[in-house]
């Protein structure tokens, strides 16, 4: 304990921590802001209120909302299943849920191309009903769901497993209905991990680049998410515009993090 009370060590650690955060976080974020406003407020406002940007916001927000709903339903059901029941293939299912974390996002995009693209397995089905999947919004939604779906399940499973199913069983014995059990017993216990998982999924869905880039086809006004728009603008020498759009992503991420802290406090 003597060691921990020496001032120099405290100061050294403090300086190191701030130096590190300063170089890898504060400086780059600061530069984004400087670049975003480098050609003035007018350029900034025109860029973030342009049709292309608004369409990118719509697409990104839609993809994120779909992922959130999917995450909530799938995550809680999968966690319930894995924590409360025994069945053959349980370990396999458990491992499969983790797959999107271990697979590179580019591969995630490519598997959708191979499945739904021209010549893919399911292509005849979807071209027969005239539904375009790849290089169209549906593929953006699919890949975003794919890369985010483990988040809620991963957070909830350990909590449910630790809690055990005794309370649910007791409630069932006392005659509670399924929805009563779900809303009055299980849900209050997993509120925090569900919220935490959703926050992580939202952050990932907003910023996802690799997988979405593969299936997008970069069609302006149709399949450009905010992240892809940033890259496109950057490649078109529109550096200030690119960083202006990046501030939207930055802002929404900060909002999500603040929301998380608020949720954890309650």
């Amino acid at each position: 304990m003597q060691l921990l009370q020496t001032k120099p060590i405290k100061w050294l650690l403090l300086v190191l921590a701030w130096l590190f955060i300063g170089i890898v976080l504060v400086l780059p974020v600061g530069l984004v802001l400087v670049q975003a406003f480098a050609s003035g407020w007018h350029t900034y406002l025109t860029t973030i209120s342009s049709l292309v940007t608004l369409q990118a916001i719509n697409l990104t927000v839609t993809a994120t909302l779909i992922s959130i709903v999917f995450n909530l339903v799938f995550g809680v059901s999968a966690a319930w299943l894995i924590a409360f029941y025994d069945f053959p293939g349980k370990r396999l299912l458990n491992a499969l849920i983790d797959l999107p974390f271990s697979v590179s996002p580019v591969i995630a995009g490519l598997i959708f191309i191979l499945t739904f693209g021209r010549g893919g397995w399911l292509a005849p089905l979807f071209s027969a009903i005239h539904v375009q999947i790849v290089f169209a919004p549906p593929a953006i939604f699919l890949t975003t769901v794919f890369v985010t779906f483990p988040f809620v399940a991963r957070e909830v499973i350990p909590v449910l497993e630790a809690k055990g199913r005794e309370e649910e069983q007791t409630a069932a014995l006392l005659g509670a209905s399924f929805s009563q059990i779900l809303w009055q017993i299980t849900f209050p216990a997993i509120k925090a991990p569900v919220a935490g998982g959703l926050v992580l999924a939202t952050a990932r869905a907003l910023g996802e680049f690799g997988a979405v880039a593969v299936v997008s086809g970069n069609i302006q006004g149709k399949t450009l998410t905010l992240s892809l728009l940033v890259q496109n603008l950057y490649n078109d020498f529109k550096f200030n515009e690119a960083f202006a759009v990046a501030t939207i992503l930055l802002g929404s991420t900060i909002l999500v993090v603040l929301l998380k802290q608020r949720l954890l406090k309650n």
């Binding site: 693209g117 292509a123 790849v134």
Partner: peptide
């Protein structure tokens, strides 16, 4: 008219893979 930009060879590939 919607436009898509990228490396020429890569863009050709997306069309082959089903970009409409």
């Amino acid at each position: 008219v919607a436009i898509s930009n990228g490396g020429s060879g890569k863009q050709a590939n997306t069309v082959i893979e089903g970009n409409q």
